[in-house]
């Protein structure tokens, strides 16, 4: 087991190294001066001091300097605002992860039971309606759906707010970047009111992000349940006189879920992409919103850092889910190689 974990760690470190190399080459590929692109500082002397290299440093020693700077969180400054990029990322990445997490949670909480119900009684009206609904959900483009939600629930019905994470008048100080944690940590505010307000802000973005993941999940779980319930060991369990509930809970569910985890690992990329699209529509102060602003303003150091951070987050999440799926699936042999 330790060996497998070490292998995954090795994979994680190497993949992150490749991402850092890529972000370093972006410094050469973007228009403008390499040193400026890597640090965000206008004057070459300042940039050299920031990177701690001489002016005659070659490609390789420049990379070593950039690499060690990246590791200690010296990611350069924004060429527009002059703020350190690392702290800006630290402010906006939690918002993205938070939205992604709640969307995934909603998709799992709704998607798994729906998929199970559909898969256990195939070709019945319940199955057909769930399948039909998931097909409809799957065909919505995220950006269009988010705009329709804004139009209906924010503008016409005025039920839910259309931008931000929490009412600005509440003045929640940022500590961790996760809004609910921050509300709990904050003093001098009406926590109950803030909580409800944050939930209201969260509702529409979460719903619009999670719908596609939910639809994918429903279809995958239904298919997998259908396959598993036909397996000889389910028939054998029936002939041992176990009740349908026992069969499903003890033998069906677990085996149906095993192939779902790798699918979830693949869905993380789609999910983060959708989160970033939805963020800019709801002015959610996350990575997507921030990265889009950076692109508009041609803030090359910020674009480079944003890519680095998002790619890193996606890789870490994917590998975590991979490890989880490896841990729960006994039929995957110990000597299997790891891969993402």
């Amino acid at each position: 087991m330790t060996k497998i974990l070490l292998r995954y760690l090795n994979l994680l470190v190497l993949t992150l190294l490749v991402v850092i190399v890529f972000s370093f080459t972006l410094g050469y590929l973007f228009p403008g001066d390499v040193y400026t692109n890597l640090t965000g500082l206008e004057s070459k002397a300042e940039a050299l001091r920031y990177l701690k290299v001489d002016s005659d440093a070659g490609f390789f020693s420049l990379f070593i300097a950039y690499f060690s700077n990246t590791l200690v969180g010296q990611w350069g400054v924004s060429s527009i605002t002059g703020e350190p990029l690392f702290s800006e990322v630290l402010l906006s990445l939690p918002a993205t992860l938070e939205l992604g997490f709640y969307a995934l949670l909603l998709a799992v909480v709704v998607g798994l039971p729906c998929g199970f119900f559909a898969g256990l009684k195939p070709q019945r009206s319940l199955d057909m309606s769930i399948l039909g609904a998931s097909a409809v959900m799957y065909s919505f483009p995220v950006f269009w759906l988010a705009m329709v939600f804004i139009l209906i629930f924010s503008l016409n019905l005025e039920w839910l707010p259309m931008s931000g994470r929490v009412d600005l008048l509440l003045n929640v100080p940022t500590v961790s970047g996760f809004i609910f944690v921050d509300i709990l940590l904050a003093d001098n505010i009406d926590k109950g009111h803030a909580f409800v307000d944050a939930l209201k802000h969260l509702a529409l973005p979460t719903l619009s992000v999670s719908i596609i993941t939910m639809a994918t999940l429903i279809r995958a779980v239904r298919r997998s349940t259908l396959d598993v319930m036909r397996k000889p060991y389910i028939i054998a369990a029936q002939s041992r006189g176990l009740s349908s509930a026992q069969i499903f809970l003890k033998h069906g569910m677990r085996n149906a879920l095993l192939p779902i985890l790798p699918i979830m690992a693949m869905q993380v990329t789609t999910l983060i992409t959708n989160v970033m699209i939805v963020e800019s529509l709801f002015s959610w102060p996350g990575m997507g919103h921030w990265l889009l602003q950076a692109i508009y303003q041609q803030d090359y150091p910020a674009i480079r850092t944003g890519l680095l951070a998002v790619a890193g987050a996606v890789i870490v999440l994917t590998i975590i889910i991979e490890v989880l799926s490896r841990l729960v699936d006994p039929s995957r042999e110990k000597f299997d190689r790891v891969a993402v």
């Binding site: 397996k231 060991y233 028939i235 002939s239 041992r240 006189g241 176990l242 006994p330």
Partner: peptide
Amino acid sequence: RREIMRRDIAVVYQDPLASLDPSVT
């Protein structure tokens, strides 16, 4: 029917390894 299968009749199927749940010891 289930009660009879549970108490009185037992079946050994042809393919033993396929008749055992792969995820449970």
